[in-house]
């Protein structure tokens, strides 16, 4: 019992530092790459670290119409909840620290908390721009939950069909990669469709273009973060970085949980750890490249009712088609 408590405490500290440092690092890489895609030079990779440092030296203004205790508490609560998700995901190919105490549904709900904290913070700012941005964020959340729920339940359902127990637990999902569970071409196509839908859901979760109507700088002057400054804004900035790492890790864990050491057959404790960690970081980088950077520089921003339409009609139907393919997987086989 006390072993779990000790593991939890140490794990939290280590993973919090890991999440923040790598979150900011990936943010920097993302800005550099998108700048090169737009034929600019872009900031150096350690720019986000400098941004956070600078935000900490700015004044922390609380507007007149805000509710102070909620205004100050929301960014902190968002960051804390986001860090707690890290303990349930297999980072770097290792077992999650709290692997027997939380599953995929918990992660799904905890992913709501950072956006919810931004929404509550926006509402608590007392400014009309912030209110409009906050309700847009809430509507975006409603929109992307539908395809996300379909993806998660489909994967769990398929694993359950094959007789596994505890199918929502991440340790079971990483032990049975989804491409191996598909017994025919329909299954593979179904899972590929779900992967594409998840890649399009990710910018919605992270409030990046084309789904960043809540933070539209050009329309509503910064949206729900308009009244935030100083250390509160730094908390939100860090939350965004950590959440990027988490979403990318989720895609890696659900669809590409392969460990390099298993493939290459390498043994030896520290070599496997180091190799797995590096391979994992590489996979996360590739996912961020495709789902955040490429999409961000390629398309324009959607209107809020277009966002709801996009997620609820085409993407939901697409993921339902994927679910149907997975359900019919056993009936069509390659001759």
């Amino acid at each position: 019992m006390s072993e779990i408590v000790l593991k939890t405490i140490v794990g939290t500290i280590v993973l919090a530092l890991f999440g923040i440092i790598f979150g900011l690092l990936y943010k920097g890489i993302d800005r550099k790459l998108s700048a090169h895609m737009q034929a600019r030079v872009g900031p150096p990779i350690r720019q986000p670290f400098r941004d956070v440092m600078k935000l900490f030296t700015k004044e922390n203004v609380i507007p007149r119409h805000a509710i102070p205790w909620i205004f100050n508490l929301a960014p902190l609560a968002g960051l804390v909840a986001t860090i707690s998700i890290l303990l349930y995901i297999p980072i770097g190919g290792f077992e999650p620290i709290l692997s027997g105490s939380g599953d995929l549904i918990l992660i799904l709900y905890l992913l709501i908390v950072p956006s919810l904290a931004m929404v509550v913070g926006g509402f608590a700012s007392g400014s009309p721009y912030a209110t409009v941005g906050a309700q847009r964020e809430m509507v975006t959340m409603i929109a992307y939950e539908f395809p996300l729920a379909i993806i998660i339940v489909s994967i769990a359902w398929k694993l359950n069909q094959l007789g596994n127990v505890d199918v929502f637990a991440l340790s079971t999902i990483t032990a049975n990669p989804v491409w191996n569970t598909a017994s025919g071409p329909l299954g593979i196509i179904g899972f590929a469709i779900l992967l594409i839908v998840l890649v399009i859901v990710t910018p919605g979760e992270l409030s990046k273009i084309p789904f960043d109507a809540p933070e539209a700088e050009t329309e509503i002057a910064g949206g729900l973060l308009v009244e935030y400054s100083g250390r509160n804004l730094a908390m939100f900035y860090l939350t965004d970085g950590v959440k990027t790492v988490i979403m990318a890790s989720l895609i890696v864990v659900l669809f590409f949980p392969y460990n390099l050491s298993n493939i290459l057959g390498i043994t030896g404790v520290y070599t496997t750890y180091a190799l797995d960690l590096i391979f994992y970081l590489l996979k996360v980088f590739l996912v961020i490249l495709f789902s955040v950077t490429l999409i961000r520089v390629g398309v324009a921003r959607l209107k809020i009712d277009q966002i709801v339409y996009t997620y609820w009609i085409p993407l939901t139907l697409l993921s339902l088609v994927g679910l149907v393919f997975i359900m019919w997987d056993g009936f069509v086989t390659v001759p």
Partner: peptide, 23 residues
């Protein structure tokens, strides 16, 4: 699952309308 999120949205709307905003 979807309806759970919708319920959250409903009550956040109420939270703003009743409790937040200028005095």
């Amino acid at each position: 699952i979807l309806s759970s999120i919708l319920l959250l949205a409903v009550f956040v709307k109420v939270f703003h309308s009743v409790f937040m905003g200028p005095e």
